[in-house]
């Protein structure tokens, strides 16, 4: 994974930040700080999927400068908190693989829909590749979006009857209305 410059908050260099705090109020502040740090990190690095088993590979959960790591079960509990606000979802039952939504699926959906209508691409079939890897969407935040996440976003639009996902053999596409 390529490392981009992250604007780490002060907590990241504060060793006890990596130990879940026993005092409820302190823990509340700690978890809140972790939640916003995770989202900010994923947004900056365009990380759509976090596998908790490989968490130590992310500088996010492993600050080697102070030799502190966030434990597996703590990461899971914080991600579960993010799930409550629609900012994350466990992909497997064991809660190892997580999708991270720094924008909720609904927010992504309206961003993509706005893009499609602004560029007058309604009523034509776009392949999913075109949609998020095409040159047209180069400057858009959803450019490079993970396919699984994209499908979930399109499902939101489908429910709103703003699009239809079309699967044909090896081609996946969508038509917007």
């Amino acid at each position: 994974m390529s490392e981009v410059e992250i604007d780490w908050p002060w907590q990241y260099s504060f060793p006890p930040f990596f130990t879940l705090q026993p005092h409820p109020e302190t823990r509340h502040k700690q978890v809140a700080a972790w939640k916003s740090l995770i989202l900010a990190y994923c947004q900056k690095t365009k990380t759509y999927i976090i596998d908790v088993r490989e968490a130590t590979q992310f500088s996010l959960f492993n600050n080697s400068a102070i030799n502190r790591k966030l434990e597996h079960n703590v990461i899971v509990s914080i991600l579960s908190e993010l799930q409550k606000t629609g900012n994350a979802a466990a992909v497997d039952k064991a809660k190892n693989r997580w999708e991270i939504y720094w924008h909720t699926l609904e927010e992504w959906a309206s961003m993509i829909y706005e893009y499609v209508s602004n560029s007058g691409m309604q009523n034509t079939v776009l392949t999913l590749y075109e949609l998020v890897h095409g040159e047209n969407s180069n400057g858009e935040e959803f450019n490079g979006m993970q396919q699984e996440v994209l499908l979930k976003v399109l499902k939101v639009l489908e429910r709103e009857r703003k699009c239809e996902v079309i699967v044909e053999d090896d081609m996946q596409g969508a038509k917007f209305f």
Partner: peptide, 13 residues
Amino acid sequence: MVDQGLAWIDLQN
């Protein structure tokens, strides 16, 4: 001091 929210515990030393 932990109970008052004034101190944080670090268990990784």
